[in-house]
Each structure stands twice: as C-alpha cells, then as structure tokens.
Amino acid sequence: MSLRLLAALPFIGILIGVPFVNRTEPLVLGMPLVLAWIVMWVVLTAAIMGIVYKLDPRNRAPQDAEVRS
C-alpha cells in the first residue's frame, strides 16, 4: 500500500502543484518555470517508479511464481 502512496506523489505534484508555479519567470534550466516544474515531475516519476519496482516483492519472486500472486 505504501508503494501506491509513493506513486500518488506525481499526481499531486502535477495536478495540484501546477497552479502554484504557473509563471514564466524565473527560467529554470532555460525553461519557463511551469514547464520546468512538469519536466521535474516527469523525471521524479521515473525515479519513483524505479524505487517502486525495486521495493515491490512481486519483482523479486521467480517469474513463474508471480502468476499466483
């Protein structure tokens, strides 16, 4: 369950976060702030899903055992 909470973070960051950063200035890495914010969450999402993959016990079990899970 905590894995799903972790995966909920990008939803919060993107859907709820954007109204607070809806500005062009300051530019971050050459991009408008709001675009940079979304890009940051895309990268964070990849990291979060990587962590979820590592922590999820289903990915450690042998391949044919997971059909039962």
Partner: peptide
Amino acid sequence: GAPVYYILAYATLAYILSYW
C-alpha cells in the same frame, strides 16, 4: 504555447497507472 505542456504530463501519469 503553454497548453502543449499537457502532453508531457498525461502520459507520465498514465504510465504510473500502467504499473498496476
């Protein structure tokens, strides 16, 4: 302009859903 940013955002969230 800015509305194009949504394309980056929706696929990202869809991939999270895809995991489960």
